[in-house]
Design a protein around this nucleic acid. Structure first.
Lengths: 279, 279
DNA sequence: TTCCATCAGT
DNA sequence: ACTGATGGAA
């Protein structure tokens, strides 16, 4: 028997919006600790890790560990039927092959329940080791999203030809961190772009700060399209944390207030010689 | 060496938005006087003339006259990466085939630079003679935009058939000026429309006035779709000036505070007989 | 291409 | 606080 009651239902809606572009099917794991998910994106390049701790739920009952395979598109469709102020309850009976989402309007005038079939999904649960990172950048999530979007537009010729679409998929961003700041760079058909954000802790609101913790300078290249996908999680948190080490996947983390986080992992591209890039 | 620093970067963003629908590629001319552009629209019917005087820049360095061919779509993409409060600097080295746009956030915490390739563009620079106009109308730019939009909707059947699209392209507006006011008229599928604006100088704010300077009455016909394109410049100025003479192109001018103007020139349609229009 | 949601401006 | 506009998703 599983019954998880989440007063701030919009959180769950936002979580789904933030990961469903990347992941189509995934196992949600429930334990006494919380409600979590770990899944590779469909092209097996990026990894998504979600945790909603049990303490964040108004009511959390999970008699035994349970792994529920869901199609995230279908789940997202159901969650869209919940109002933003609705209380969401997730229920599953032992041995059942379905899960039920229940939505209560704030006034209790409307109560909806949606039942969805579960799926069997193979998945190796990767242990993700804690690592020391060369550099950790914390910045406003909106600013990070804006930069990723701006840099994408540089590689976007507006051309709808397949060849150009491919370019867009391959467009890379170089993220370089020094003590002074973090630099995002790209090179596209119409030109090049560099955006530098200086460390800045002297702002009115702490969530507007850009904070850099650096042990050693680091410069890594990533596929920009994944970064852009990650920024779909911006509504979850006003800040984002980007943790970088050479030869390690970058971690882009959005904390979920009182509950946990969504983390995205992405392996860097191996830097090729300029000549190779040109060819 | 060219280096132009514009504190109110949003001006340049607005300028681009106002002309990029009409012109796809154009030469920007830099001289000690200022930063200017003159270009025909892609169908060679309308002419755009832009001037940003050097005095309007916080810093203006232009060692020698320079003509830089740019694709306005790409330039516009880059300028969209600038925040509305950013300071924009345009830079080009002598002999370089690129131009660099630099954007500084007001707090200086974010500095972006975008480099764009220049193009070779043939263009005859037309000398535009100063002329005496039969009538000059000054009115709020928002009102002019609203009228053009409203009149367009009369010719717009909402029908997406090619035949109807063609109608929309050919839809004409008659602008008639008398001492009493200015009249905008059109005739479309669903009916006819006349909007008369009376001279009116007794308003609270000068930018709300409608002022008519008239030497002799004039009535001219123009393609409405170009007028609608011109009104994209409305964000640049709260007033617009429309200068009319029979047999001369109309001039639709938006002044740019402290800096210059954007002017649009459009030749009148030769009035045909009513019968001919119907056929 | 159309519709919806989010953001900015009034 | 409301409306319009723009950008993203279906």
């Amino acid at each position: 028997m599983l019954e998880l009651r989440l007063v701030q239902g919009s959180l769950l809606k936002k979580v789904m919006e933030s990961i469903k572009e990347l992941v189509t099917d995934a196992n949600f794991d429930c334990s006494a600790t919380g409600f979590s998910l770990q899944a590779m994106d469909s092209s097996h390049v990026a990894l998504v890790s979600l945790l909603l701790r049990s303490e964040g739920f108004e009511h959390y009952r999970c008699d035994r560990n349970l792994s529920m395979g869901m199609n995230l598109n279908n789940m997202s469709k159901m969650l869209k039927c919940a109002g933003n102020d609705d209380i969401i309850t997730i229920k599953a009976d032992d041995g059942s092959d379905t899960v039920t989402f229940m939505f209560e309007s704030p006034t209790q005038d409307k109560i909806a329940d949606f039942e969805m079939k579960l799926m069997d999904i193979d998945s190796e649960h990767l242990g993700i080791p804690e690592a020391e990172y060369h550099a950790i950048v914390r910045m406003p999530s909106s600013e990070f999203a804006r930069i990723c979007k701006d840099l994408s537009s540089i590689g976007d010729t507006g051309d709808q030809k397949n060849e150009k679409l491919l370019d867009r998929l391959l467009l890379a961003v170089v993220i370089s961190v020094t003590k002074e700041g973090v630099k995002f760079s790209t090179r596209g058909d119409i030109g090049t772009a560099n955006v530098v954000c200086r460390q800045n802790t002297t702002v009115d609101k702490p969530e507007e700060a850009t904070i850099i913790e650096m042990n050693e300078p680091v410069s890594l290249t990533f596929a920009l399209r994944y970064m852009n996908s990650f920024t779909k999680a911006s509504p979850l948190s006003s800040t984002v944390t980007i943790s970088l080490s050479s030869e390690l996947p970058v971690v882009v983390e959005y904390k979920i207030a009182e509950m946990g986080y969504v983390r995205f992992y992405l392996a860097p591209k191996i830097e090729e010689d300029e000549e190779d890039n040109k060819s």
